[in-house]
Computed example of a mutant assay.
Amino acid sequence: MALAFQPAEGWAQTLPGCKATTLQDPVREVLDCGNGLIIDKEAAAALASQAPQRSLDLDDRAILIEVSPRDSFQVLTPHAIATVRGTVFAVDVESGTSSVFVVDGKVEVSRRDGSSAVLLGPGEGVDVRPGEPLTVRNWPQPRVDALLARFGR
Results as ranks from 00 to 15, higher is better:
148 L>C: 08
66 E>W: 12
67 V>R: 00
11 W>E: 00
1 M>P: 12
152 G>V: 00
100 V>H: 01
121 G>R: 07
132 E>T: 10
83 T>Q: 15
60 D>H: 10
46 A>Q: 14
131 G>Y: 09
114 G>T: 06
128 V>C: 10
21 T>L: 15
63 I>P: 02
45 A>Y: 01
151 F>S: 02
66 E>G: 09
74 Q>C: 05
78 P>K: 06
96 G>R: 14
9 E>W: 14
114 G>K: 14
76 L>A: 13
136 V>H: 06
19 K>P: 12
116 S>H: 09
6 Q>P: 11
42 E>W: 13
125 G>K: 00
36 G>S: 05
109 V>I: 05
103 V>K: 07
86 G>P: 05
99 S>F: 13
45 A>P: 03
72 S>E: 08
21 T>C: 10
96 G>E: 12
88 V>I: 11
61 R>V: 13
122 P>Q: 09
99 S>Q: 09
108 E>D: 15
93 V>E: 07
42 E>R: 14
117 A>E: 10
124 E>T: 07
43 A>I: 13
137 R>P: 09
100 V>L: 06
135 T>C: 11
59 D>L: 13
95 S>K: 13
111 R>V: 07
114 G>L: 08
97 T>N: 15
112 R>H: 10
100 V>S: 04
27 V>E: 08
82 A>F: 04
101 F>G: 05
125 G>L: 05
125 G>E: 04
38 I>R: 08
152 G>A: 05
128 V>W: 03
42 E>P: 07
57 D>T: 12
11 W>L: 00
144 V>C: 07
138 N>D: 11
105 G>C: 04
6 Q>Y: 11
25 D>V: 11
18 C>H: 02
90 A>F: 05
71 D>V: 06
107 V>A: 04
58 L>E: 01
123 G>H: 06
72 S>P: 12
72 S>Y: 05
38 I>M: 06
102 V>C: 01
130 P>A: 13
108 E>N: 10
127 D>M: 07
17 G>Y: 03
50 Q>Y: 01
65 I>S: 02
80 A>Y: 02
135 T>A: 14
33 C>N: 01
